[in-house]
Amino acid sequence: MTGADVLLLALGAVAVGAGALVVATRHLVRAGLWLVVCLGALAGDYLVLTAELVAWVQVLIYVGAVVVLLLFAVMLTRAPIGPSDDLDRPGWAAALVGGGSGLGLAVLLIDAFRWSRVDLPAAGTAERLGEQVFRSWVLPFEVLSVLLLAALVGAIVLSRPDIGRRSADEGGRQ
């Protein structure tokens, strides 16, 4: 077991633990915070796997923007600060399907890879990654920017307060 393996194991345990708490805790705000921990651990994982750009993009966007948005949403929907009892529905179906999928995938992957070894590539892949993005993957890149624009416009349209008020009036009349 090399140092990389130890780090991967530790960070993986942290991620899984934090993820379990995200889906199990009774505190809404704490769920968001445990999500930060989980995503941070994953960023660490990426660093170990020499994917620096992905790691820092993960921190910037996922931890920095997405989780912040989720916490904003939690606040705007008047989530209670303390524990709430009505957050969950009966868990047997969830456990069945969730457990089944998780464990099944794990079994599949263990069966595929066993205890094999792989050499990590050299560090400093950001420049090479940039080369790939802007050479082979430039079209999907541009399409993604259009998609982001569409999502932006959509989110703005959905969030306009006057549309909400008009629909509320019509909803009330119905």
Binding site: A93, L96, G100, S101, G104, L108
Partner: peptide, 20 residues
């Protein structure tokens, strides 16, 4: 949504099991 999500994910699991 709960029933739909359960259906979709259970179905995906079953298909995955079958393929495996």
């Amino acid at each position: 949504l709960p029933r739909a999500a359960a259906g979709v994910l259970a179905g995906a699991l079953l298909i995955g099991l079958a393929v495996a």
